[in-house]
């Protein structure tokens, strides 16, 4: 473990008019760590994730990112070219709906290869080989490399999106309900795959989920959000087995078996 956090979020606010969607959130993400942000719909967890990635400009606060290439960067003041460069090299964003993260009218291979090409890869055979390796890694039959993702099942599309994001070896991956909308059996397969990939690649991950089971399986730490604020934070087993805040207790007690 490095002794400096990869990401330091300080007093982050995201306001939509009078609504404080994210209200004074602070936390740190360390290299190799998986943090889950849990809470109900409307708690602000997805907005927080999108603000960190730069999809939404924060109203106030600071997000410090330690880049391999550029050193310490204040993301709230980062110019767009560099933000986009980071987004397609050092970061990855996994959307809840794989259709938001894939190019549906391009083949699976092209979807995986796009980030490589965006990063400057110009050898077709190498791009192809990496796409094949990644399809295999996310358990998609390599014979389907030239098929369009719209012919894939929801679970396959989600695994394809993950391959597309991870192919450039990002350090920081943000996931928005990666298992949402999938059948339970498909979810289990995806979670197991994510667990392995995160461990093998040493990824730092922020995963937003309303599913405490997902948080238990993937995350070392949990942040509980309610109405834009982090009401409780701690180790996964601390928060799930000994929740302190009334809202955390409500969340934990509402789950059949977490």
């Amino acid at each position: 473990m490095s002794d400096l956090p990869l990401l330091s979020v300080r007093c982050l606010d995201v306001r939509f008019g009078a609504l404080a969607a994210v209200d004074g959130v602070s936390f740190e993400l360390w290299p190799g760590e998986v943090v889950a942000i849990v809470g109900e719909s409307g708690s602000g967890k997805t907005t927080l994730l999108r603000a960190i990635h730069g999809f939404i400009p924060p109203t106030a606060g600071s997000i410090l990112y330690r880049s391999d290439r550029f050193g310490e960067i204040e993301l709230t003041r980062l110019d767009e070219p560099r933000r986009r460069l980071l987004a397609r090299t050092e970061w990855g964003f996994v959307h809840q709906n794989p259709r938001d993260g894939l190019r549906l009218s391009y083949s699976a291979g092209a979807n995986v290869g796009e980030r490589l090409m965006a990063a400057g890869a110009r050898h077709w055979g190498n791009i192809r080989a990496q796409a094949l390796a990644w399809l295999d890694r996310v358990e998609i039959d390599v014979a389907r490399i030239d098929d369009l993702p719209r012919t894939f099942s929801g679970g396959m599309q989600q695994r394809l999106q993950i391959a597309r994001v991870l192919v450039t070896n990002p350090r920081l991956v943000l996931m928005d309900e990666p298992t949402g909308g999938l059948d339970v059996s498909v979810q289990a397969r995806l979670l197991d795959m994510l667990r392995r990939l995160v461990a093998d690649l040493g990824l730092s991950v922020i995963v937003v989920t309303h599913d405490l089971g997902v948080a238990r399986l993937l995350a070392q730490r949990i942040l509980v959000m309610q109405r834009g604020r982090v009401v409780e934070a701690g180790l996964t087993d601390q928060v799930l087995d000994d929740p302190q805040h009334p809202y955390s207790q409500l969340l934990v007690s509402s789950v059949l078996a977490a």
Binding site: G234, D237, Q238, D241, D242
Partner: peptide, 9 residues
């Protein structure tokens, strides 16, 4: 026992 493991605060 759980406090000794850090699960219970």
């Amino acid at each position: 026992l759980r406090a000794l493991y850090g699960t219970y605060v």
